[in-house]
Amino acid sequence: MSLDRSWQDDWAETWLSDPAYVGMLDHWVRRRHVQHHEAAERHAPYGTVGPWTVAGLVSDVHRHAMTSHWLWATTAICFLQELLFCIDDGGVDMSRHLSDDFIDEVKTLRYLRNVVAHPAKMPMKTGENSVDQTTDPLSVGRESL
């Protein structure tokens, strides 16, 4: 991450700015959602399968960033990682099928998620639920997304 560049420049270099790619991931996540519900014999409408969608969160990331609401943009990114990296197995843990190539980036996003989504929780032991686990959590590349 560089402080010399605009958000627009960073955004343009990621898949977040590619509507076709966003649509494809949105489709895949919705489909996995529906499949998990069906496995539990629950009906889930594809069009409104959950309160968070990839397409909705991606537009939220950009919307918040454009108004310099960085904490909210980060929160949307953290929710986005949970959809993308947990939905394959349908839980809140990282999917077992994630590639080792980017597992560290995913873990860092998850530490961030704990910080932004559970602001009152205190670490019970060193390293737990903590930004301690990475030297500079905010250096997690937006380019990684």
Partner: peptide, 30 residues
């Protein structure tokens, strides 16, 4: 939008976005 249909078999079909669906898609949220 392309709606995944109830399976099996797994398939999809075009479907019309409803008023409720306005809160689910990137362009309608926008």
């Amino acid at each position: 939008y392309q709606r995944v249909t109830d399976g099996p078999p797994r398939d999809w079909e075009w479907h019309v976005v409803s008023e409720i669906g306005r809160y689910s898609w990137g362009h309608t949220i926008g």
